[in-house]
């Protein structure tokens, strides 16, 4: 087998994988619509506002509900001590 043929076969396999991933995106997002009612129902029934990703502090568990001073809640000019703080965006006012 010529080297170029081997290359084209590899390329074809990879491109098929690439196209399959895009088809997968389209089909899975349709599937999600079928599963979503359970989560959507829970969100609207309980009035949930945040994802339960970081549970260590109230301003990381509910970033959308936290007040703008929440990172400095312990005493004035207190540095925040939860590691998630480095992953969460500071309030918009501080970035201006």
């Amino acid at each position: 087998m010529k080297r170029s043929n081997t290359f084209f076969v590899c390329l074809l396999v990879l491109l098929t994988g690439f196209i399959t991933s895009l088809v997968d995106v389209a089909s899975e997002s349709g599937q999600r619509l079928l599963q979503a009612p359970e989560s959507a129902g829970l969100v609207s029934r309980l009035g949930l506002t945040d994802l339960s990703l970081f549970t260590e502090a109230r301003y990381t568990r509910h970033p959308s509900q936290a007040d703008i001073h929440s990172a400095f809640q312990d005493h004035p000019v207190a540095l925040e001590h939860f590691p998630t703080g480095s992953l969460l965006q500071p309030p918009a006012g501080l970035l201006r």
Binding site: A36, A40, G41, V43, S44, G47, L48, L51
Partner: peptide, 8 residues
């Protein structure tokens, strides 16, 4: 965004 589309 999809999950929280029904938030209050």
């Amino acid at each position: 965004v999809a999950l929280l589309a029904n938030s209050p």
